[in-house]
């Protein structure tokens, strides 16, 4: 397993779900972007998933459940810098 996944550490306010993309694993299939009910995600011209509107995220986890590559993570109760627990260690 790649241990050094680059993560997009986004400045998510405490009351918003924290969305993490493991870029090394992402194959840019666009599934998470296409089926997000709130248009939180977008695909850049470089085929990278961008968390465009984290504040709109309702933590439905559909992106996570459909991602074929286990490359996107949504954490509901981000509580500042300690919220690293679920990440790849």
């Amino acid at each position: 397993m790649t241990q050094t996944s680059k993560t997009q550490n986004l400045p998510t306010p405490n009351n918003h779900p924290r969305i993490t993309i493991f870029s090394d694993w992402c194959k840019s299939c666009g599934i998470c972007v296409a089926f997000c009910p709130k248009e939180v995600l977008a695909m850049t011209a470089d085929h990278e998933v961008l968390v465009k509107a984290p504040e709109k995220c309702i933590a439905c986890h559909m992106c996570e459940l459909r991602c074929p590559d286990f490359a996107i993570n949504v954490e509901e109760h981000a509580t500042g810098p300690d919220s690293q627990k679920g990440e790849l260690q």
């Binding site: 694993w25 790849l88 260690q89």
Partner: peptide, 16 residues
């Protein structure tokens, strides 16, 4: 979550 899933169930010496 996906990252918990990976930590708990994946073989960590497999290439991803």
């Amino acid at each position: 979550s996906n990252s918990q899933l990976v930590n708990k169930y994946f073989r960590h010496n497999k290439k991803f």
